[in-house]
Design a protein around this nucleic acid. Sequence first.
DNA 1: TATTGTTATACTCTATAACTATA
DNA 2: TATAGTTATAGAGTATAACAATA
Lengths: 180, 180
Amino acid sequence: MHRGMLTGVPEPFPVPIGLRLNQAARAVERAFDEALAAAGGTLPVWLVLLNLKLRRPANQRELAEAVGVREATLSHHLNTLDARGLITRTRDAANRRIQVVTLTEAGEAAFLRLREAAIAFDTRLRAGLTDADLTTLSALLGRLAANVGNCGDAGPPWAGLAERSRAPGGPRPAGQAAGP
Amino acid sequence: MHRGMLTGVPEPFPVPIGLRLNQAARAVERAFDEALAAAGGTLPVWLVLLNLKLRRPANQRELAEAVGVREATLSHHLNTLDARGLITRTRDAANRRIQVVTLTEAGEAAFLRLREAAIAFDTRLRAGLTDADLTTLSALLGRLAANVGNCGDAGPPWAGLAERSRAPGGPRPAGQAAGP
DNA sequence: TATTGTTATACTCTATAACTATA
DNA sequence: TATAGTTATAGAGTATAACAATA
């Protein structure tokens, strides 16, 4: 009864695909959050570390964009990482406005732990799906995203945090990312 | 370069499907949030109204479960709805522990507005997708959800809010739902 | 004046724990 | 004691606005 049609409503109504999408995304998100938590991390922390390693963002603006948050929000997360001893911030000698973010040894270790968790998670997630399935799924997801405006393939594939359009406060992202 | 493989990493690595899923889900979520906001609502508000109309939850525990939040969280949202004059809560004469939640006239009107927005959104979202596409997509999404534990088809199709597994605070849902 | 980043503040959504009231 | 619900408190994540420092 929960498959295909909603009944008990004026006229048969197909289960909205957006809802299916969201249920799946939330289930996956929750599981990924748990996997990261088990490895001592959170999604924002993981995304920041990942982007620091993968890209070499010239400044925090780039990093924030890659992570998918505002600059102020990134500062917030960097403060957390700093407090946890995972990064250091030092002024660039050539342009002292720029803070050069560097992973500490503990930061590198945290990155490796989280990367392992992310890789294991992705493997688990792909179970039973062929490459063709994944390609199809990816294409369909791209279409949905395109249908609502965001081109669906914009930005780096590891951009994983929500960027609220409405005023303050907002939903939470979800995420999952590659292990380089 | 952002398609299929991540480069610049030790070994070619397929773009994690979980990440694709999440990007799409967030784009859709954001758009749906906007659509609801334009109709004067939010996702929690919509889900509460929808569940009140669609089901006839016997008590708030049922309603909370349908919406996908804890009872205390539901109270929170009901307070908002109450403050906005969309619902009333009255004690059940037979069992005075039970609060009977009723939509006011303004609540009914809000429901209709949000329903229209949700239906329009779903139509927009499905653009260019055949029924076969939707079936395929739904199945693949179900598989992903199943792979991470949550059976992917549990609960009412309109349960749209996140249920945090980790301590306090937490991610935000996303959502989209049917218009009955 | 423009760029870079931080701080201050606030908001949404969520949760747990403790409480009231009823059964 | 058990059930129904509310209130109090808290926390994560996000945002905007105002600010400082540098160019």
